[in-house]
Computed example of a mutant assay.
Amino acid sequence: MHAIRTFCLLVLTTLVLAACAGTPDFIRLADTEWQLAQLDNRPVDREATRRDPYLLMHGDSQRVEGFAGCNRLNGVYSGGGQSLRFDSLASTRRYCADAMEQEEAFMHALERTSEAQVDNGMLTLFDNRGRTLARFEALPTR
């Protein structure tokens, strides 16, 4: 009886730890440069920015860095499975007349993110109601 109870406890513990570990979708976010392609279901205005907006999430430290269109950004991310959250986001404070509206929308989308999905080299961010906030394309590793 004791052996059965121990075995069941071991199986239950393994299942709980596997559920908390994060799925391949979450793992595939890390160490990939994600170039912003759509924001609020509209194509990104690449003419307004100095260079293309992107995110880079470091898997070893769960830090995020990137470029929002005018300013660099950084912070931390967390989650597991399809859950994704950005916290402690900060950016430089440069002003770029043509890029500020899109940059503010980008930062606001990151702040509202609660879920993410990776599919065919595309990363899609969703809010807590399942609405699409932003879409990114995976860039080839350099």
Rank of each mutant, 00 (worst) to 15 (best):
Y77L: 01
E104V: 13
Q82V: 09
Y77A: 00
F86C: 05
A68W: 00
R94V: 13
A97C: 13
T92F: 06
S78T: 04
Q102N: 05
A99L: 03
L110H: 04
A116W: 03
E101P: 10
D98A: 10
A90R: 12
E111M: 14
T92P: 03
L84T: 00
F126N: 05
S83P: 02
S83L: 13
D119P: 06
A109E: 08
L89C: 13
M122L: 11
Y77W: 04
S88K: 15
N71A: 05
M100E: 10
A90E: 15
F106D: 01
G66F: 00
S88T: 12
L125Q: 04
Q117F: 09
N128T: 11
L73N: 00
N71M: 08
Q117V: 15
L84C: 06
A90N: 08
A90G: 11
R94F: 14
G79A: 08
G69I: 01
N120R: 14
Q117L: 11
Q117H: 13
S114A: 10
G75L: 07
F126T: 01
R112Q: 12
T124E: 13
D87A: 09
G80T: 07
D98H: 12
G81N: 06
Q102P: 04
C96L: 12
E104Y: 13
Y95N: 12
L84Q: 05
D127H: 02
T124Q: 10
A105W: 05
H108I: 14
R94S: 13
N71Q: 08
N120P: 11
M107Y: 12
N74W: 09
R93S: 08
T92A: 06
M122R: 10
F106V: 07
A90L: 10
L89M: 14
G121F: 12
L123Q: 03
S83M: 11
G121M: 13
C96D: 05
A97G: 08
F106P: 02
G75C: 09
E101R: 14
G81E: 03
D87M: 12
G69Y: 00
A99F: 03
R72N: 12
S88Y: 09
F126Q: 11
R94C: 12
E101W: 14
E115C: 09
A116I: 01
Q102L: 04
Q117G: 11
D127S: 04
Y95W: 08
S91N: 09
G81C: 05
A97L: 10
S88W: 14
S78C: 05
S78D: 06
L110V: 11
T92M: 09
V76N: 03
L73W: 03
A105G: 11
Q102T: 06
L73D: 01
V76H: 02
S114C: 06
L89T: 07
